[in-house]
Nucleic acid binder design. Structure first.
Length: 269
DNA sequence: GATTGCTACGAGGGGTCC
DNA sequence: GGACCCCTCGTAGCAATC
């Protein structure tokens, strides 16, 4: 499973890693990139089956019709004790990103047969029951991520992914183990911990929704009650976008029953 | 070297809003 | 119907431990 779709480059003197949009790479007719950071042209790979290895400062190429394999260094969090050593991933950069009419990848993959009413991804031939699921899925083939992290610049397709990633920078760990006080950034980590360390098995069915926890991403405050949570945000972080969303929702609910709800909403924001 | 526990993240499912 | 939000599952990769 690819863990990175953005190309990351080392910035000159300071040596810091930096995500780079694919548009910043210049394609050439002979299937090579021009690296404008170091103004060095990387060679194309003579064998499509053997993507070239790379040096950390240069994106190096595999080749193939319709696109190019590139080895890229993967982002690391910088978190103490975490996995911060550079590692590499091979990703496919497709010409179809720039030429939308070209869809020539993954020809060797067996194509599942879609039923009537199914929506098939033209890139990977995955089948989705709803158009909106296909539309969203297509974003994962797009190299440009719409939600960049303001700390490290890494991009994500989903706001939730970004919010979750931000916890690696803020250190907020909303999911606390009641038995040993250990805290986790994700619920699945806590559940795995409970299961393995304390032999406490979850009572939820597959894909069953857990009880919602409201997390203040500014200070780490958590509450299972929305009124408590928004009271906290209102008092401590009055400029939070979460508060605005809450007011908007409240106004929408109130407006269904009484005009006073809209008045309250308008006077709160 | 193998196993365990954890972090981080890609991506699908579903609800809601506009 | 698209965008947004939140959820979950699955998994790569690492450090610590056995």
């Amino acid at each position: 499973m690819p863990r990175s779709f953005l190309v990351k480059k080392k910035r000159g003197a300071c040596g810091a890693w930096q995500w780079k949009e694919p548009e910043q790479l210049e394609w050439k007719e002979d299937n090579t990139f021009v690296d404008e950071m170091c103004m060095k042209q990387t060679p194309s790979c003579p064998d499509p089956q053997h993507p070239a290895t790379v040096s950390p400062s240069v994106i190096t190429l595999g080749c193939g019709t319709g696109g190019m394999r590139v080895s890229v260094p993967l982002e690391r969090s910088g978190r103490p004790g975490a996995d911060n050593r550079p590692s590499w991933s091979t990703v496919m950069l497709r010409r179809s990103v720039y030429e939308p009419t070209t869809l020539a990848l993954h020809r060797a993959k067996p194509r599942p047969s879609p039923g009537s009413g199914d929506f098939v991804c033209p890139m990977c031939y995955k089948i989705f029951p709803l158009q909106r699921m296909l539309t969203r899925h297509l974003k994962c083939h797009n190299l440009v991520k719409r939600h960049p992290c303001r700390f490290c610049g890494k991009g994500f397709n989903d706001t939730f992914d970004l919010k979750r990633h931000m916890r690696t920078h803020t250190g907020i760990r909303p999911y606390k183990c009641e038995l040993c006080e250990k805290a986790f950034t994700q619920r699945c980590s806590l559940e795995s911990h409970m299961r393995k360390i304390h032999s406490v098995h979850q009572q939820y069915a597959y894909r069953q929704r857990r009880s919602k926890i409201f997390v203040c991403e500014d200070c780490g405050y958590t509450s299972s009650r929305p009124d408590e949570y928004f009271l906290h945000v209102r008092q401590c972080h009055p400029g939070s976008p979460a508060l605005r969303r809450y007011y908007r929702r409240q106004a929408h609910e109130n407006s269904s029953f009484a005009p006073a709800g809209r008045y309250l909403f308008n006077n709160l924001i």
